[in-house]
Amino acid sequence: MSKDQFEYVLRAGDDALILGQQLGLLTGHGPVIEEDIALTNIGLDQIGQARAWLSLAGRLEHAASSELTLRDEDALTFLRDAPEFCNCLLVERPNGDFGDTIARQFLYDNYAVLWLEAMTASSNDEMAGIAAKSVKEARYHLQHSSRWVLRLGDGTTESHSRMQASLGRMWPYVNELFDVDELTTRAASEGWGVDPSKLRSAWDAGVNAVLAEATLSRPDDDFSMRGGRTGSHTEAFGFMLAEMQFLQRAYPDCNW
């Protein structure tokens, strides 16, 4: 069970970590100072959540097979290669223009709030505790990204068309969030995890309401990209990882 729990918690940690890294890349590049601070603050929350999940993942892995060296949050972050990461593809989409950053955040935040809320009922106390703490932050992120979707969608002709285009670019990565596999099935049936497919209708309702108010149309293209959960990542991922891991790879265990 610990090995299952390790892999499951690793997914949550990788989602938070990769989104946090992407948002961190915007430091000093936000369109206005307030938004620069907002995006990097959200990124900081994501990194904080990632630390909690990854630290737990390392302990669960160690509990499952004690002959393995304990991997802490840093080892899991800096010393794994791309195929070992199991984040959803949505969070690794490049920051693109501001509309892409907001569309990615909005679609993810809607999922994160629901997933974390469900995880507060986990039979594993540590998972439930991290989820209860994280969901408070995720709700605030959702409020922020929803306001931007409204502002841009129901803004000027230019902002509307660009927000719509960004939504279309991120849409193929939505279905993967709700994919069920053997791991999520065992996690849900054993009571410590969540069946992601059960979150879909609430996600649809939340997203549809904001899109309607923002005068945006919901993309009807059902084409889906998948593979993140099993380590198949998009082209942009390796470049991002190279930047994220360079220092620890070049100077192992460096400190300052």
Binding site: E34, E35, I37, A38, N41, I42, L44, D45, Y140, Q143, H144
Partner: peptide, 13 residues
Amino acid sequence: LVSEFGSTACKAH
């Protein structure tokens, strides 16, 4: 409200 995020995570501007 100027910004939902301030100088630290716990504050808004």
